[in-house]
């Protein structure tokens, strides 16, 4: 039997974090970029809870709950901005929205 320890959780969360990061840098669809950022945030949550479990302390788990709440608020603001943008620009592709370049 394989013992699942702290390292496994940390590796998993690091991989998730890097996948999310690559997604933000590579993908051009706003909704997908937003999802990738959420993936990064959840990778952080996973490692926080794993650390808390390993350290036998409750702080990390409490922090994870706060992060989930903040992520919900971020989704509200983010989707509102994306909707406003798609109404003005009729696209949600980042490369097609560049009126501000000089």
């Amino acid at each position: 039997m394989l013992d699942v320890g702290l390292d496994h959780f940390l590796f998993l969360s690091a991989i998730l974090f890097i996948i999310g990061m690559m997604g933000v840098l590579i993908r051009r669809n706003l909704i997908v970029i937003f999802m990738c950022v959420e993936l990064m945030t959840n990778a952080v949550n996973l490692s926080l809870v794993a650390f808390a479990w390993n350290l036998n302390s409750i702080d990390g788990q409490a922090f994870a709950l706060f992060i989930i709440a903040v992520a919900a608020a971020e989704a509200v603001v983010g989707l509102a901005i994306i909707i406003a943008l798609s109404r003005r620009a009729h696209t949600i592709n980042v490369d097609e929205v560049r009126t501000l370049r000089n």
């Binding site: 901005i81 994306i82 406003a84 943008l85 003005r88 620009a89 009126t99 501000l100």
Partner: peptide
């Protein structure tokens, strides 16, 4: 209503 404002915010 101004695209640049929303784009900057995005």
């Amino acid at each position: 209503r101004r695209l640049t404002s929303v784009e900057g915010a995005m």
